[in-house]
Design a binder for these strands. Structure first.
Lengths: 118, 118
DNA sequence: TATGTAGCTTACCTGTAGGTTAGCGCTTAC
DNA sequence: GTAAGCGCTAACCTACAGGTAAGCTACATA
């Protein structure tokens, strides 16, 4: 019954919570788009909304809030009229980069598998 | 305007599709639980449903179908009464392991950051 | 005869992510 | 005076993921 190769049930169980966190945090339709826009040097609200095609102001605003709460981005208001608000990736946010790359790489491989009828 | 460090907008755009695929494939409430159950040596429907606490038959059945379509698992019917069906990770499915580990590791780090008020 | 079994499927219901539209404060530009 | 601009927010609606409950096959046991 406990005949597993290099697998440890406890360890797996423990992975599930942080995994769920991550998936929740990065899930949804827009998170990656936004993160990548920010990674690409875009920083102001309208710039992001232009860069992330199709997103509405409301949703963008909400997603940015989510990301800020989770310490992925910072929000800086500059006292000015019309308002200026800048968003930037935190170090923690930047640490997502390799994970995202791996995910994308796997996704690419997966795409080929499926398309080529693997 | 094109002043980016090691960042390439095109590359990012190209990442978004496979990224979306992956997130769609692994997203939802149960996929990881199921994959981990299978990775842990569990293979029959009822075993999985017991191992993945809280999942309903209907949802498990649907998720397994999804995973099969996406070539993450195989489904083998054994002619028998009562029916016996075995599910196993494919090589492709197993190749998710490192990605999942990275994701979980980042999630763990993230959890600490947030909990410790990073 | 009734009940339990494995692996589903069908029908139905609910919660929520995300879409649409509108409007706010406050200034400059026509 | 009125229109446009930025960064939101509020009100509303829809689609879909996922939950619950029941039923199917065909045999085995009580």
């Amino acid at each position: 019954m406990e005949r597993e190769t290099d697998h440890d049930k406890e360890k797996c169980q423990k992975q599930l919570l942080p995994l769920a966190d991550t998936m929740y945090l990065l899930g949804g339709k827009w998170k990656f788009h936004i993160i990548m826009a920010l990674a690409g040097g875009v920083s102001r609200f309208k710039e992001i909304s232009k860069s992330v095609e199709g997103i509405s102001d409301k949703v963008l605003s909400k997603e940015l809030k989510d990301l800020e709460i989770n310490n992925i981005i910072t929000r800086t208001e500059i006292d000015h009229f019309p308002p200026i608000v800048e968003y930037h990736l935190t170090e923690h946010g930047k640490s997502l980069q390799p994970v995202v790359n791996d995910l994308a790489a796997w996704g690419q491989k997966h795409r080929n598998k499926i398309v080529n009828g693997g």
